[in-house]
């Protein structure tokens, strides 16, 4: 207490040492739960690494073919042509391996985010109290500058893929939670009543009425989660997550505008492809629900 008073008197413009408390808290966690963090980190690393290794082991034409096929199916030949051109450009500028790494990072971060975000969103939609608790947390997670997560993440998990993915997850979870919960709460009252009136249990109501009707909103959440994950995995190269972010980062460090443009273009093209494709899934649903 006297410590606090002393500080208040000596430094009246910064007498609340919140930053220091956070530091102490982080160190406390590290000192006492280091083992748990290590185990958790290894699990995440294994998950992400298997995805990355798997994607990298595939021949480029297979991955390209997959996306072009998706493009034809969801959006038609014109978009498929765009995908082909985009991949040719990335391949030609020599960024293919990094792009696949970034894709893998985005994929693992998105999957983890959805595994957390969708159930949380469902819980929020069904429980008012949980909702009032979770909402400010989401606001905090989304508005806190993204870099700030990188530091504690690196302290807990060292440098590399894991802190990058986990910082990304923190950043990308909120839209999944929000849109899942919004979608479920927007289900027409009479549709929910119809579920009840025909004898749905609460699980049946969720899986046969609420989730299917909320699917367009959930897909919009998935789309946003992917986009946020992609933007964050680039930033996460600062803690050594790898992928295209590395090239962007070194272009900044070396003031190499050319390298920055090429790697940045690869990011943009990947973003457009992922955005249009995931958006098309939500739209197909929404049209049916017209």
């Amino acid at each position: 207490m006297s410590d606090f008073l002393h500080r208040l008197i000596s430094n009246p413009h910064d007498f609340l040492p919140i930053g220091e408390w956070v530091n102490q808290f982080i160190h406390f966690l590290l000192d006492h739960n280091g083992g748990a963090f290590d185990a958790f980190g290894r699990a995440v690393d294994l998950f992400a690494e298997s995805i990355e290794v798997a994607l990298l082991s595939l021949p480029p034409w297979l991955i390209m073919g997959f996306f072009i096929g998706l493009g034809v199916w969801r959006l038609g030949w014109r978009f498929a042509g765009f995908v082909l051109a985009a991949f040719a450009l990335i391949f030609g500028t020599g960024f293919w391996p990094q792009t696949v790494s970034t894709l893998a990072l985005t994929l693992s971060a998105t999957l983890i985010s959805l595994m957390i975000g969708i159930p949380t969103g469902i819980w929020c939609a069904r429980n008012k109290r949980v909702n009032t608790l979770v909402r400010p947390v989401l606001d905090f997670m989304q508005t806190m500058p993204a870099f700030v997560y990188l530091i504690p993440a690196a302290m807990f998990f060292g440098l590399g893929r894991v802190p990058g993915i986990l910082a990304t997850v923190v950043f990308a979870v909120p839209p999944a939670v929000r849109l899942t919960s919004l979608g479920i709460r927007q289900v027409n009252k009479e549709q929910v009543e119809a579920g009840h009136a025909f004898g749905c249990t609460s699980t049946q109501l969720l899986f046969k009425v609420q989730l299917p009707i909320a699917l367009p909103a959930i897909m919009a959440g998935v789309n946003q989660t992917i986009m946020m994950a992609l933007s964050m995995v680039i930033i996460a190269s600062m803690v050594g997550a790898g992928g295209l972010g590395n090239d962007v980062l070194s272009s900044i460090q070396r003031l190499d505008v050319g390298l920055g443009f090429e790697s940045g273009l690869a990011v943009v093209l990947l973003a457009i492809i992922l955005d249009r494709l995931t958006e098309s899934f939500g739209r197909g649903q929404a049209a049916r629900q017209g």
Binding site: G195, G199, P212, I213, Q289
Partner: peptide, 28 residues
């Protein structure tokens, strides 16, 4: 023993007409 018909129809947009018609039986 009971079922209900709603003012706004309250059909399930993700189901076909037949699947909607069979909804109650499916739940049961």
């Amino acid at each position: 023993d009971m079922s209900m018909v709603f003012q706004s129809f309250a059909l399930m947009p993700h189901r076909s007409v037949l699947e909607n018609a069979a909804f109650g039986l499916e739940i049961a």
